[in-house]
Simulated assay, not measured.
Amino acid sequence: MAYPIVWQIEDVFYPLISAIGVPVNLVAIMILSRGNCGLSKCITHYLIGMAVADLLVVVFDAILWITVPIYLPHSFVKITPVCSVLSALRSAATVISVWFTVTFTFDRFVAICYERLKTKCCTERTAAAFLGTVTVLGCLESLPWYFAIEPRYIIDNIPWGCTHKQSYYSSPGWTAFEVINYILTPCVPCFLILLFNVLTVRRILVSSQMRRGLRGQKSAEKHKDVEMENRLKSIILLFSISGSFVLLWVTQVVYNIYARITDIRYYNSYTDPCFITDRTAKMLQLLSSCTNTGIYAVIQVKFRQELKNAMIYPFNQIAQAWNKWRV
């Protein structure tokens, strides 16, 4: 039987995502932590949190869960206890990453639409509290995945392999857990992100009309509205991050709903459209963990400058060392 084309794509895609995802998220964390990007501490906290969560998704899911088993099928990650831990960690990283995006969207929604709440809710302390709460809840939600795994075989008293227990497919408890898990991540987050963005757009349109009416057409033409310009930058960042997230996750959401309704558990062949859709949705999902740094670089001028400085820093150091050596 010919090697399925989807698997051939995955054999290249996941190592590539692993090779790209780690450095870009590390660079984002480093640059944002310096605090020189012209962003508020509140926004910076959320962006750093999202970059850390995306980095963990790449490490636990793309690298240890997928890439390593592809190229090292008999490595330590296939030992059942290790595999069980990775199953819980990859789920926790994904849940936390998704809900960090929701909290960031909610924070920007409050900041743009509710000026009175902005000073109380959109603060560094509140951001830390939200991120910490989401992290704890995400880990608790993902903990049951550790107990869903059993070994395929035993070699020298060491359990190897990683497969779901038989009770996972027959127990009402596991069925309920799986449904709740799919609802909480990513169905509810996608709905909330879309809802907050729609309400934000509605508020922006109303606010813009009111401000133009108050300032007058001539006044608006002669003077720049600094507040609206700053708000526009924040809106572009918000819509870019949340829009990218929704676009890359929508296939996963739609397919999960369809698979649950039609009760798809097995595929007829490797050319089955459902099989191809499922594997494609997973690749798009992991791609979402590598896009935010590119968004920052495109939108944020100061982030772009910091990135440029970081890239030329090693060459500057080498040039200085060379000049000292020559002297």
Score class of each variant (00 low, 15 high):
residue 109 F to W: 15
residue 149 I to C: 09
residue 114 Y to W: 14
residue 109 F to G: 03
residue 85 V to F: 14
residue 158 I to D: 08
residue 114 Y to H: 15
residue 110 V to K: 08
residue 97 S to F: 15
residue 144 P to G: 09
residue 119 T to I: 08
residue 140 L to Y: 10
residue 108 R to P: 06
residue 140 L to H: 02
residue 84 S to Y: 04
residue 150 E to W: 03
residue 136 V to N: 05
residue 155 I to L: 15
residue 95 V to A: 08
residue 137 L to E: 02
residue 157 N to M: 10
residue 141 E to S: 00
residue 156 D to Q: 12
residue 107 D to M: 15
residue 90 R to M: 11
residue 111 A to K: 01
residue 135 T to F: 15
residue 152 R to H: 03
residue 147 F to R: 03
residue 127 A to D: 09
residue 89 L to W: 08
residue 105 T to H: 05
residue 91 S to M: 13
residue 117 L to Y: 14
residue 118 K to H: 14
residue 94 T to V: 07
residue 135 T to A: 14
residue 130 F to L: 11
residue 146 Y to L: 14
residue 116 R to P: 00
residue 118 K to C: 12
residue 157 N to A: 12
residue 142 S to Y: 10
residue 153 Y to G: 00
residue 95 V to T: 08
residue 107 D to I: 03
residue 114 Y to R: 13
residue 141 E to D: 01
residue 130 F to D: 07
residue 144 P to V: 07
residue 121 C to K: 02
residue 122 C to H: 10
residue 139 C to L: 15
residue 124 E to I: 00
residue 88 A to I: 01
residue 84 S to Q: 12
residue 102 V to I: 09
residue 158 I to L: 10
residue 87 S to L: 04
residue 100 F to V: 01
residue 148 A to Y: 12
residue 143 L to G: 00
residue 101 T to H: 13
residue 98 V to A: 09
residue 156 D to A: 12
residue 128 A to Y: 09
residue 131 L to C: 07
residue 93 A to S: 13
residue 90 R to N: 08
residue 141 E to W: 14
residue 113 C to D: 07
residue 153 Y to H: 11
residue 97 S to I: 00
residue 108 R to T: 05
residue 88 A to S: 13
residue 149 I to T: 12
residue 139 C to R: 04
residue 98 V to R: 00
residue 126 T to V: 10
residue 123 T to Q: 06
residue 141 E to K: 05
residue 123 T to Y: 07
residue 108 R to D: 08
residue 130 F to G: 01
residue 139 C to I: 14
residue 123 T to D: 09
residue 96 I to Q: 10
residue 120 K to R: 14
residue 116 R to N: 12
residue 117 L to H: 06
residue 144 P to S: 10
residue 159 P to N: 07
residue 87 S to M: 07
residue 102 V to K: 03
residue 152 R to V: 14
residue 95 V to I: 12
residue 111 A to W: 06
residue 143 L to W: 11
residue 144 P to D: 11
residue 148 A to R: 05
residue 138 G to A: 06
residue 140 L to A: 13
residue 106 F to L: 15
residue 84 S to H: 04
residue 121 C to S: 07
residue 116 R to E: 15
residue 101 T to M: 13
residue 109 F to C: 06
residue 124 E to R: 04
residue 124 E to H: 10
residue 147 F to I: 02
residue 90 R to F: 05
residue 114 Y to I: 04
residue 119 T to W: 04
residue 120 K to V: 08
residue 99 W to D: 05
residue 95 V to Y: 14
residue 102 V to Y: 06
residue 135 T to S: 12
residue 91 S to P: 00
residue 115 E to I: 06
residue 88 A to D: 07
residue 142 S to M: 05
residue 132 G to K: 01
residue 85 V to H: 01
residue 89 L to H: 02
residue 131 L to Q: 11
residue 121 C to P: 00
residue 106 F to Q: 02
residue 154 I to R: 01
residue 149 I to R: 11
residue 159 P to K: 03
residue 136 V to C: 04
residue 93 A to H: 03
residue 88 A to V: 02
residue 90 R to E: 10
residue 157 N to R: 09
residue 116 R to G: 00
residue 103 T to G: 01
residue 118 K to T: 09
residue 99 W to T: 02
residue 102 V to M: 09
residue 128 A to C: 11
residue 134 V to K: 05
residue 150 E to T: 13
residue 123 T to M: 08
residue 136 V to R: 02
residue 137 L to T: 06
residue 149 I to V: 15
residue 158 I to S: 03
residue 93 A to I: 01
residue 98 V to M: 12
residue 131 L to A: 04
residue 150 E to F: 05
residue 125 R to K: 15
residue 115 E to W: 06
residue 111 A to G: 04
residue 143 L to R: 01
